[in-house]
Design a protein around this nucleic acid. Sequence first.
DNA 1: CGGTACGGCTCGTCTAGACGACTAGGTGTC
DNA 2: GACACCTAGTCGTCTAGACGAGCCGTACCG
Lengths: 261, 261
Amino acid sequence: MGDLKLPSLDPTSDRPVFKQIADHLRAAIESKALTPGEKLPSESQLIGHYEVARMTVRHALQILQSEGLTVAQHGKGVFVRPRPPVRRLASDRFARQHREQGKAAFIAETEGVGAKPSVDSITIKEEKPSQDIALRLGLSDADRVVVRARRYLIDGHPVETATSYIPASIARNTRIAEPNSGPGGIYARLEELGHRLDHFTEEIRARMPLRDEARALRLAPGVPVFHLVRTAYDQAGRAVEVCDTVMSSDAYVLSYELPAQ
Amino acid sequence: MGDLKLPSLDPTSDRPVFKQIADHLRAAIESKALTPGEKLPSESQLIGHYEVARMTVRHALQILQSEGLTVAQHGKGVFVRPRPPVRRLASDRFARQHREQGKAAFIAETEGVGAKPSVDSITIKEEKPSQDIALRLGLSDADRVVVRARRYLIDGHPVETATSYIPASIARNTRIAEPNSGPGGIYARLEELGHRLDHFTEEIRARMPLRDEARALRLAPGVPVFHLVRTAYDQAGRAVEVCDTVMSSDAYVLSYELPAQ
DNA sequence: CGGTACGGCTCGTCTAGACGACTAGGTGTC
DNA sequence: GACACCTAGTCGTCTAGACGAGCCGTACCG
């Protein structure tokens, strides 16, 4: 930090001062002159180096933060944002073979890489589905759904929230409507209930998090989320579950395999 | 706009003033009191309503912008960001049946919804691949690749940049190394060259755009991108192409189908 | 009638400062 | 030794202004 060499401003450039400062710092980060976790020069140091007002320096720092490159810590400094280890989600993660060892997909995967998985904030209700959910599940106006919401954590860090919607006609008074859905998770319960799973569809969007999502996932500013909606179909072609998932985008890489025909 | 009712500040709250103002405006947008394309109250109007300094109002507006909710237009005002029509990419989009009508996937899909597709900035080079690309293509140190870069537009709006890497041993001196790769695109050429395609893998990340990407895709602030890396394998199990794609995340929904076994 | 100039509105950049709150380390007291 | 306190350094919030630049409608002039 003390030995970081920052260029001077180019007074002939049309580029505003705060963008030039942001460019310098961004270049330092991208060139690894500043490494993840390392402290950037403090606001006072930048003010001294560039001889500009504090708001100008703060504006530059704010840009980097909104790009997800840095995080500020009150009273300590501004740091290059460390990247969490990435979880790779493969498209066969719901294959029956993975389920039959009695573990839900998330638990099995996470333990597989030596980390401690946990689940919290489990809530279960029965309610009238939104129009979108009703459409995906093929329900009519009078039908109701069991809603299972929960949050997944790895080593205590939240990485994903998920909300499942299952037609009440299937799930009511079963273990699916209990907080602990039992070994293998709700997909195992659905199969026991005679809904042998055939395939899933997944829709993936990416966007900036809503306020609640940023809080629930403890997201740093400038980190987008994956918004994933999965629908499970049984062999009769009936949609038996919709799962709405929000994931921190820098904790995940999604991976799929596509046939060529 | 003139009839938009904004609450007053809560002086008893610990929440900073600029966040309260951002909350009010965000709520107005989310409740559709302000609709996409509509103009927000001007800075002066907000200063008058809340009786705060201009920087405080600007700070609030900047938050909304970094969330991708608004866009500012110099000299005109701040507007609720209109959402572009969404393109849905299905997991069978590279299926042979779609290719055999002689059109590349992008062209066929886009015309299918009545919009005008175009492609520009086509560049072709031959070079030494990066370590990552070499690994994905299973190449050794001396091997080279043909690199095809291009940008896709819909009705003149850029939506996607793509860079394909094909082993030079396959593509050199073929139509793949020509700007116009011919009917059906490079996948059709690869099959003609005896590399009958078997399957693809896709890796999906989401993140904030780099500066160049934001420029090339004309992205509004606060809009993340999908970063998609697709590898094509022929029936001999050989990787024959890697395609590195960056897409505006609000122009796309990615859709996949997963088997249950 | 057509073009130009102007004024008023908008957001963009930048300054100079005040005060608050959090962190960490050192000092002093008990 | 344990604890409270102080202080310097950091970022967070907010004020009050200045000037610039883009957009647009209107009044004026040719």
